[in-house]
Every structure is written in C-alpha cells, then in structure tokens.
Simulated assay, not measured.
Amino acid sequence: MTDRTAASGPGGGPPPAPGDAGDAARDREWSLAELARAYAYPEPAPDGPRPWLRANMVSTLDGAAQHDGRSQPISTATDMRIFGTLRGLADVVVVGAQTVRMEGYRPARARAEFAGPREAAGQGPAPAVAVVSAGLDLDFSLPLFTSPLVPTLVLTGAAAAPDRVAAARRAGARVVVAGDGTGVDPARAVRALAGLGHTRLLTEGGPRLLGQFVAAGVLDELCLTISPMLTAGDAQRITGGPSVAVPHRFALASLLEEEGFLFARYRRP
C-alpha cells in the first residue's frame, strides 16, 4: 500500500513507519496499528469531545456502490482491513435497516489488536451497532439483536409502532427515539448517540441513510474506496435521496493506493 499524500494535521496522512525510506518502502501491507494512526479520529476539543461522524463507502469507477445488491463484489481484502480498522476505532456503527437486511449484518466483534487502545480510550470491547429504522421491519431473531457483545441500538421515531418497539426490546435491543414522527431526524440521531457517550461515529450506509446525513449537514468525513471496476447497470450511488441545494465541498485528507484501488479520506473543511 502506498501513501499518496503527506500528513495533514490531526487524523491526517500517517507518518512513515520506522525504517521506511520513501514511497518504495511504503509500498507494502500496512500494519493495523499504522492504519489506526492513519484513520485516527480528531483529538477532543479542550471543552470536551464533540460527535464526529465519518462514513465508509466503496464505489466503482462508474459510480456503483453495489453489484447485485451488495458491496462485497466490488471490495478487496485491503478494503476489508480498513473496514475493520474503522470499526476498531468507532464507538458506534450506524447503519440503515435496508443495509442490515441486504448485507446480513452481524454484531461487531472484539479484536485483540484493538483491545488495548479501546480500553485506553474508555471504549467498550467492540462498537455498538445502531440500526436506523422507521418501520422497524427487522428480524429481531438475528444474532445482531439477540447475541451482540454490546447491545444493539435501534434508532426510530416517536410514532413507531408500539408492537415493533416492544419486539425490539424483547430481543435485547435498546430503542432510541430520534424523531417526532415515524422517521429519524439525522441531526437528532447524532445528538442522541453523543448523549449516550458515542462521539466517534461511523456509518456504513446504505446510500439512502448516507444521503440523509449529507442533506442534514452532519457528515464530517467520508472514507471512500474507489474500486478499479466498471459495472454499468443501474446500481445505486453511495448516496441517495433528494439533492442538496448547494453541493457540499470536502477537502482531501489522505490518499492510499494498492493494486489500483484508491483509499481516500475527505473531511469537512
């Protein structure tokens, strides 16, 4: 893996590992510790941590976020290492109900490589998973709800069907109200999670949920894997839903490359 950018402030590009000498030496498999430094969340402000919402998505050259309804076919092993690193750094993984159904989501697992840093940061053994769902049309018998290492959260609206709310709670999920109607307000969801102590937020989509975060102006960072593939067809982009009135411009924080795959980080200026 080659670093195509220099370090750029807190959470920017990673420094070379000891013994490295230029791009040729950096063109190798990075350790999880190096990836964790490269993707570190910003340091807390003097007045305390504020929520930082980053997204992790993959896209083909022609803009497809999925192939045959799933992201795995356009991913790569290194993309999955970064995926695991981002989870290892996060307090909570926020995901839409449709993505849970399509991708077969399972609970986040504890990883020995991140045990020490997570304990030092005051984090639990693994991030919680927070599922955003208006209708709560979820299979609460899945391991995501019945046997997570950290209780799964369900973000929904105040007008959600009481029987579905009860079903979620019976399964062991914690229901968090983040909207006045049946739907979830993105900004309120971020505040609600921060109120539970989850300030290092990671969303893995899907496209509609990410589009809602973008439209609400609460996305701080986008980690985007650009896959050197062309799929054509009518697959979704990484964001869905209505367009914003004025495009949101982000700044490039770091860029890594391996075998034609680009691993970019863009941050709110």
Rank of each mutant, 00 (worst) to 15 (best):
P46K: 07
A45M: 07
I82R: 12
T146E: 11
W52L: 05
M57D: 09
G241N: 10
A171R: 10
G116K: 02
L262V: 08
A189F: 08
G63F: 05
G84T: 05
D163Y: 04
R268L: 15
L32M: 12
T199F: 04
A173P: 07
E259V: 13
D23P: 14
D62P: 05
M80W: 10
S227G: 00
Y39Q: 02
A115D: 09
V93L: 15
W30K: 02
L142S: 12
S59V: 15
G12R: 05
R37L: 14
R101A: 15
F145K: 09
G179L: 05
H67A: 13
H198V: 00
G69T: 07
Q98M: 14
S141K: 03
G69A: 00
G84Y: 09
I74R: 00
C223P: 05
D91V: 03
D68T: 06
A24Q: 00
A128M: 06
D79T: 02
D62T: 06
E204A: 10
V190P: 01
R111H: 12
A55W: 11
Q123K: 14
A110F: 01
L219F: 00
A121K: 07
P10R: 04
V94N: 08
L202H: 10
D27I: 01
P73Q: 08
E103I: 04
G13S: 12
P186F: 01
D3I: 14
R191G: 00
M102I: 13
Q72F: 04
R106Y: 02
P49Y: 11
P148Q: 11
R106Q: 05
R87C: 01
G211C: 09
L262W: 13
A160Y: 08
T2Q: 09
W30I: 00
R268E: 03
E204D: 11
T203P: 05
V176A: 07
E29H: 04
A168K: 05
P228L: 02
L210H: 12
Q236C: 01
A253F: 06
L89P: 06
Q212E: 15
T156C: 09
E29W: 04
A253Q: 15
A168G: 07
P186L: 07
G48H: 11
D139S: 07
R208P: 00
A161N: 13
G104P: 08
L149H: 05
D91N: 13
G172L: 11
P127S: 11
E29Y: 01
V132M: 11
P162M: 13
S141T: 15
A128C: 03
A159T: 13
